[in-house]
Write a protein that binds this DNA or RNA. Sequence first.
DNA 1: TCGATACGCAACCGTCGCGTTTCATAATGC
DNA 2: GCATTATGAAACGCGACGGTTGCGTATCGA
Lengths: 204, 204
Amino acid sequence: MMTRQMAEGAARAAGRPRSEKAEKSIIEATLELIGEGVAVSELSIEGIASRAGVGKTTIYRRWSNKEDLVVDALTTLKPPIPPLEGDSVRDDLIAYLTVIREESRHTHTRCIMNIAMSDSERHPRLAARFDELAIQPRRAVMAEVLRRGIERGELRPDLDVEMAMAILTGAMLWHTKWSHRAADLRDDLAERIVDEALRGFRPR
Amino acid sequence: MMTRQMAEGAARAAGRPRSEKAEKSIIEATLELIGEGVAVSELSIEGIASRAGVGKTTIYRRWSNKEDLVVDALTTLKPPIPPLEGDSVRDDLIAYLTVIREESRHTHTRCIMNIAMSDSERHPRLAARFDELAIQPRRAVMAEVLRRGIERGELRPDLDVEMAMAILTGAMLWHTKWSHRAADLRDDLAERIVDEALRGFRPR
DNA sequence: TCGATACGCAACCGTCGCGTTTCATAATGC
DNA sequence: GCATTATGAAACGCGACGGTTGCGTATCGA
């Protein structure tokens, strides 16, 4: 991994090997802090070290700067992509949006998203990583659902898949971010979004 | 203004009055820095003072902390809401989304939005202010357009206005934030979003 | 056993921002 | 003129953090 500090391949293990546990707890602490709403610029190596029960040295030995560490930390995020094999496009989309909604309920996810969005200007590498790990896989899943729907004849053959994804995902994000009336966040939100959107997506 | 440091009403002007110019340049500098992508947590009074050509004292005399200052700065934002009196819902919506799109092209707007979104967890007052000044007026305009459309019979009478707004605005935000293919950001983006969305919004 | 490397910890220096104070100066009312 | 208040500039002590170094210890291969 480019961002890592040497001691990966060659190097010959001559002395005490690096503690796998230390590394894990460092990354864990980093993700925890991020999950608690600490912005990248506010993350301090000292804070991470103390949270991880680790010396600063141990961190600097592995990563030469904060951004490298955060990039590696994000890498460990394995977003669970739900398998969508329902009977209909409607079922799959509702299941998908429900997952998105549940995720964005948790502060952890929200903070990570915030970082991805707000620090994207100043930390393009972070943004790229986040996109690669979190956004793209979901896009792929959703695109596949929509394509299947087109094949099955549930959706218009000329449907712009990208546009459809933007409408569905955008509507959900908008609601979870800016909704002001509790009524808009009812449990059937995903269902209502999908039903409204599908009106225009189905063949006429 | 609650957040302001006294010397507003009573107090009797006994000595040298506070410089109106200094106050303006402080707020201006604050907005400039925010516009350049500096997060609230990274904003420093010193930085603002030096940018504004002002002593720190002058700032502390007026605001007791950073957040108060930023709140006041945001207050001066007067988002221009375009008058939407087109011939059709389609025209109005396209005009509206085009404005949103143009705004989000400019780094200034993007950064302010970033702050509003990412700092909303830690600075609820900021988020509330931003919502009041930037979000709500736009929501109102768009809701009015949609309601007019319903009255005119251009839109389904049972259309959920909130949902429609979420779909339209969400789709545009999603595109401008996460779009990866240049093709998705073509000049006719607003038009394409509106046309796709309206398919489901019109009476059948 | 020995050399090498990693470990946690503490100390270190340099930088930066905060919030305060002091200073000479400028603008106002009496 | 005189008292009063504001101004920009500079400096203060303080704490947080970065990044480095040394210490004593732990864990590896040879």
